[in-house]
Amino acid sequence: MSAYDKVQAARNSKRLTAVDYIGKMFGSSFFELHGDRRFGDDKAIVAGLAMLYDVPITVIAIEKGRNTKERMARNFGSANPEGYRKALRLMKQAEKFHRPVLCLVDTSGAYPGIDAEERGQGLAIAENLMEMMTLKTPILSVLIGEGGSGGALALAVADEVWMLEDSIYSVISPEGCASILWKDSTKAPEASECLKLTSHDLFDLGVVERIIREPSNIDDRKMFEGLKMLIARTFDKNLALDTERLLQTRYARFRRLGSHS
């Protein structure tokens, strides 16, 4: 598969979305919690409590919607500031009860709307980055589809970041990159190669710790059960660390990313 094939796979409307993963891994134990307690409830972010085997966890996911009606209601998975603030509220709640946090990321980007700007989209993302870095409970982020720039990163400051094999994670959309570079958005396939946005590229760059096999379909129980077990094992490992060590490791994880002479 070329990089652009991966881009298309990550965006495919038939691709499983966050609520599918939540349903398959946590079933009826998932209890959704709504609202940011400030402005409203952003439907692009689905969040709540769930049982991971016998451990209660906080799940925060960006949901694109599975059909046209859902996609409209979910704003196609583009969150507004109140969505990021809902996420932060529930992360703080998780910290209070020392519950691990699982983030599922699937977004083309934070919503670039007039209202979003007026309500401080930049600040909402910035606050998540700051607070997640020192959140005193384990965080794990899994990119299950598109990882669009700052809007994805706002749920991906974590102890480990994993990617589904055909998901992507990029600083800019390939179309945006192509139109800036070559004044031609149809050159997105070339831009996709340059940006190194596939799971394997990002693994090589040290940006993700693990690549997860794609589910063959929604009934691929083996895959969902395997993913669930991996998540549980990772949380177990990180819950055993003392908080200072956990946060030091998280800081160091991002601290080393970059390269210079």
Binding site: M130, M133, L153, V171, L197
Partner: peptide, 26 residues
């Protein structure tokens, strides 16, 4: 904004700098 020529590593600078700001603030 973030520099697209360094791809995802530019994006990661948002997290890295925010972490350093938070430690300073704390």
């Amino acid at each position: 904004g973030a520099r697209m020529q360094e791809g995802i590593l530019s994006l990661m600078q948002m997290a890295k700098t925010s972490g350093a700001v938070k430690r300073h603030s704390d």
